[in-house]
Design a protein around this nucleic acid. Structure first.
Lengths: 166, 166
DNA sequence: CACAAATACATAACTAGTTATATAATGAGT
DNA sequence: ACTCATTATATAACTAGTTATGTATTTGTG
């Protein structure tokens, strides 16, 4: 049995740890979507939900709603469009902008998912987090706010310059 | 201001949310390493620490120690070797296995990092998590254990088949 | 001793993002 | 009216992983 070095290093490797848990969760949600016959990638769920709730959206708004960069949002939009789930049109007010909305097919998929699938996934993931000693989702919100407020390198710049404790 | 749909969806999109926080943290640690002139990727830190602590390691052991798949560990090993930080030799006992150990250069980088850099990163990330209302690192350990114990699709399979609450 | 199964790793192809840069359109200032 | 700065998006190249598959070696069984 090999030690889990990422767990042991704690805060130093927190980024790697968050990523691996994120990938694991995305992969397991993907398996569930496949078993239930839903033709979407788990990474597309946030975008579908965003367009459903807030649509029509521009590419920039989609990026912001999902919390990814603009090229990432372009890529997601392209995938969903190729799957026939969203429609992309140029804005009549600003030709630079493109407006993303659900197609009939997309709307139907989202409606049936909201009724039959997403609550089951939500419940199963909530079950994993049920016995945690603290409100995980709020803590994640706090972490994201703190990162937004003061990036790491500024926190390090204001540390005292004596040697860290031995 | 666009709503943060990933935050609003909570458990359903927890995988995406973990990934984005993980990527954000890795990116910010990377910026710090660049500013301090350390010639490593933040994603390589866990592997360097693993080889330092447990070395020599096989590729499979490195994968396990860092919590990634075997091809991912091969890729990491190749990067570190190309940077001159680790040495890779074939095991004399089992020709299938390769043994990874720190080079002099790698050992030196790890020693100075342990003294001068890693504690500062650890402290800065700990500061971000200082006011959380729960023990984050323990919560992550619990989540990983629960995922290990019962994958999502089995949790969903055992849910009652009546409609989830409206 | 021979063969099949298992194991260890490398490689190809892919996912899910990122950063850097290019292009087109809009808006502000003179 | 023109020019330059800004904005919106697309594309290229990249990172940090994954899954699938292939090859080489070891182990177990008959």
């Amino acid at each position: 049995m090999v030690d889990d070095v990422v767990r042991e290093l704690g805060y130093l490797t927190l980024g790697s740890r968050f990523r691996r848990i994120g990938e694991r969760l995305q992969s397991e949600v993907q398996q569930v979507l496949d078993e239930l016959g839903l033709p979407v990638q788990s990474s597309q769920l946030p975008a579908l939900a965003a367009v459903d709730r807030l649509g029509p959206l521009t590419v920039g708004e989609l990026a912001e709603a999902v919390g990814i960069t603009q090229p990432g949002a372009t890529r997601l939009m392209t995938q969903l469009s190729e799957s026939g789930l969203v429609d992309v049109r140029q804005s009549s007010e600003d030709q630079r902008r493109r407006l993303i909305s659900l197609t009939d097919k997309g709307r139907q998929l989202v409606e049936t998912s909201k009724r039959d699938v997403w609550p089951r996934i939500d419940t199963a993931v909530a079950e994993i987090c049920a016995d945690l000693t603290g409100p995980l989702l709020e803590q994640l919100t706090a972490i994201e706010h703190h990162l937004e407020a003061t990036p790491l390198h500024r926190r390090i710049a204001r540390q005292p310059h004596d040697q860290p404790s031995a």
